[in-house]
Each structure stands twice: as C-alpha cells, then as structure tokens.
C-alpha cells in the first residue's frame, strides 16, 4: 500500500514539466527515504535524478519498496488537470497495475481522482559516485535559462569555462559567435540573485545546448541553479526543491575525437 499526500501539489506538476521532454517512460521508486526516479534520455547522453524526500510529504505511507513504471507524458497529462493550489495524493495498492492521483481543492469542495495505467519498463540504473568538482557555479535559474535560450538561437553547442574572472558561456553558429560572461556577485540583499563561483581549477567543457534547454524546464522549481563541472565528467545541473529534495540533470560532455 502506497499513499503519499503532498499539500503543495504544484511541486509535482512542475517536476513533470521539468522531466517529461527528456524522458518518455521511467520507473518511479518509492521507499522509506522518499519518492525518486533515475532515468536516461533515449540516446543515453543525459540522465535525470529526482528525489522527493518522505519528510516533505504531509502523509507518507510506503509499506514496501515499490518501482512503478509510468509514461511521463501521460502522468503530465493527468497532473495538468490538478489546480495549482490543489493537494495531490498518490495512491497505489500492492500488486496493482494502476496508480491513482487524487486532487483536492484547498477548500475541499472539489475532489477528483485520476487512475493511470502502469507499465513495465526495463530501465538501466547507473551508479553515480560522489565527486569533488573542479568548479561549482550557483546562479539565478532564470538567468541560466535565458543564456541557454539565447545561445540556442545561434549555435548547437555551448562551451562553459570557469576561471577566476567568472563563468563564460560561448557558442558558434553559421551566423556568428556569442560569449556571455557572468561574474561573481554575492548579492547579500537578494540571495536569489547571487552568482557564486567556487573554483578549485579552471575548467572548460562543451555541451549540446538542446539538452541544457531541456534542463531549464525545471526553472519554476527553484530560484537558483547549481552547475558542477569537472574535466572528464558529466556536468551536474541541480535545481533544489525547497524542503523536499532535488532534480539533478547529468549531461555527458562533448569529447575530442
């Protein structure tokens, strides 16, 4: 028996919008720790890891570990039917091939339930060890989204380089080139507008912008994004979900031929 009640149901709506374009089908794992997912895109270039910790739910009952295969497209369709202020409850019985999403309006005058078919999915889990990153950039998520969108109109790839001067995003396309430098800005009055660069070593890596723009769909989840870079490692783009967990995207860099 599984029963998870989330008063701030809009978080789940935003999570689905943040991952459904990258991954079509995925197994959601439910355990005492929380509600989680790890999935790769179909070309195995990018990976998304989601964690919603059990403590973040108003009610969390998960009698045994469960892995439930879902079409993220269909799950997003169902969650779109929930109001932004609705309380969302996820329910599943042991051995059932369906999951139920219940939406309650804040005043309890409207209650809806949507039952969705589960599916069998063969998924490949990767072990991602904790790593020390050479550079960690924290910046406003909206700024990062804007940069990826702008550069995506000019080129297909972005070169991200972190030096003592700041973080530089560069691209090159048929019409020309673009460079955007963001300097450290430890805005004390407005921490959500700060850009903070922790650098052990200068690092330069190249990534496909298409994926970065897909990651930026998580922008409504967090005011800040953390970008962790090391040469020879996938970049980690993390959006923290307040009090609950995170959505992390891993993207393999472009490598020399």
């Amino acid at each position: 028996m599984l029963e998870l009640r989330l008063v701030q149901g809009s978080i789940l709506k935003k999570v689905l919008e943040a991952i459904k374009d990258l991954v079509n089908d995925a197994n959601f794992d439910c355990s005492a720790t929380g509600f989680s997912l790890q999935a790769m895109d179909s070309s195995h270039v990018a990976l998304v890891a989601l964690l919603l910790r059990s403590e973040g739910f108003e009610h969390y009952r998960c009698d045994r570990n469960l892995s439930m295969g879902m079409s993220l497209t269909n799950m997003a369709k169902m969650l779109k039917c929930a109001g932004n202020d609705d309380i969302v409850t996820i329910k599943a019985d042991d051995g059932s091939d369906t999951i139920t999403f219940m939406f309650e309006s804040p005043t309890q005058d409207k209650i809806a339930d949507f039952e969705m078919k589960l599916m069998d999915i063969d998924s490949e889990h990767l072990g991602i060890p904790e790593a020390e990153y050479e550079a960690i950039v924290r910046m406003p998520s909206s700024e990062f989204a804007r940069i990826c969108k702008d550069l995506g109109t000019i080129g297909d790839t972005v070169v991200i380089s972190v030096t003592k001067e700041g973080v530089k995003f560069s691209t090159r396309g048929d019409i020309g080139t673009a460079n955007i430098v963001c300097r450290q800005n430890t805005s004390i009055d407005k921490p959500e507008e700060a850009t903070i660069i922790e650098m052990q070593e200068p690092v330069t890596l190249t990534f496909a912008l298409r994926y970065m723009n897909s990651f930026a769909k998580a922008t409504p989840l967090a005011t800040q994004v953390t970008i962790s870079l090391s040469s020879e490692l996938p970049v980690v783009v993390e959006y923290k979900i307040a009090e609950m967990g995170y959505v992390r995207y891993y993207l393999a860099p472009k490598i020399e031929e």
Partner: peptide, 14 residues
C-alpha cells in the same frame, strides 16, 4: 571536431 559522450562512458550500470 568533438564527439558526443555517452553516460555509459562515465558511469557504470548496477
């Protein structure tokens, strides 16, 4: 030129 890396080139399945 650069080639697109794959997650399997960096992390192991378990």
């Amino acid at each position: 030129g650069k080639l697109q890396g794959s997650m399997f080139g960096f992390y192991e399945k378990y």
